[in-house]
C-alpha cells in the first residue's frame, strides 16, 4: 500500500493546505454522492463499518517483510462499498491513524488523496474487467495490484511536487529513492492482492448479493 511516511513539518504549510483542500473537495463530492442515493443502503453502511474497523486494525500492524511494511486493504474497500463510501472510509482511517500516532496530522490530506486513488482505481478495474475476467479471485487480485500501483504513483508525485523542507536533494534524487519505495510497496501489494482475492471470492461464494452487480 502507499502511504506518505513523513512527519509533520516535512511539507510546507502551503502544500499541506493544497492537499487538504483537494482531499476535502473529493470528500465533499463523495458525501454528496452518498447522500444523493434515494434510500440509504443498509448493507453498504454495515460493510463500510466492517471495512473501517478491519482496515484500521491491519493498517497499524507492521509486517516483518522487506524490513517492515503494512497493508491497508484500500482496493478491497473500493470493491465492497464503492468509491464514494470508500473515500469516507479511508478519510476516517487516516484520521484515526494520526490520532494514535501513526502518521502526521498535516499529511492526512495527502494520504487521503493517495488512498482515494487506490479505492477508486480498485473499484473501477474490478468493474471494467468483469466481462474479460469472470473469476472473482483473479479479477479482485488484478484490480488490487493496479489500484495500489496507481496509488504509489500518486504518492511519489505528491512528494515530488510538494518538495520536502530542509533537504538538499534534487527532485530527480528524491524520485529515485521514492521509486525504490514504490517498487517495494508493490511487493506488499501482491500479498494484499492475494488476500483481497480470497476475501472477494469467499464473499462471492457465500453472499454474492453483497457484491453489487455480480451474479449469484
Amino acid at each position: 500500500m502507499a502511504h506518505i511516511h513523513l512527519e509533520d513539518g516535512s511539507f510546507s504549510l502551503l502544500w499541506v493546505a493544497v492537499w487538504w483542500i483537494a482531499a476535502v473537495v473529493l470528500i465533499g463530492i463523495a458525501i454528496y454522492l452518498v447522500r444523493s442515493e434515494k434510500k440509504p443502503d443498509r448493507r453498504k453502511i454495515t460493510l463500510a463499518a466492517f471495512c473501517t474497523a478491519a482496515a484500521f486494525a491491519i493498517f497499524q500492524v507492521s509486517l516483518p517483510i522487506f524490513g517492515g511494511v503494512h497493508l491497508n486493504l484500500t482496493p478491497l474497500i473500493g470493491i465492497l462499498v464503492g468509491p464514494a463510501a470508500g473515500s469516507l472510509v479511508v478519510l476516517i482511517i487516516n484520521i484515526l491513524s494520526a490520532a494514535i500516532g501513526h502518521g502526521g496530522w498535516g499529511l492526512i490530506g495527502a494520504n487521503t488523496l493517495v488512498n482515494i486513488v487506490e479505492v477508486g482505481i480498485g473499484y473501477a478495474m474490478f468493474r471494467m474487467l468483469r466481462s474479460a475476467i469472470p473469476d472473482l479471485f483473479s479479477r479482485a487480485g488484478i484490480a488490487t495490484i493496479i489500484g495500489l500501483f496507481c496509488g504509489n504513483i500518486v504518492m511519489v508525485l505528491i512528494v515530488i511536487v510538494s518538495g520536502v523542507q530542509g533537504v538538499n536533494q534534487s527532485p530527480s534524487q528524491i524520485l529515485t529513492g521514492l521509486s525504490l519505495i514504490a517498487a517495494l510497496n508493490m511487493g506488499v501489494a501482491v500479498i494484499e492482492a492475494f488476500i483481497t482475492g480470497l476475501i472477494v471470492a469467499y464473499i462471492g461464494k457465500v453472499r454474492p448479493d453483497l457484491l453489487s452487480g455480480e451474479r449469484p
Partner: peptide, 11 residues
C-alpha cells in the same frame, strides 16, 4: 518503512 522513506527524501 519510515527509515526508508526519510532516507529516500534526504532527511
Amino acid at each position: 518503512i519510515e527509515e526508508r522513506f526519510t532516507q529516500a527524501v534526504g532527511l
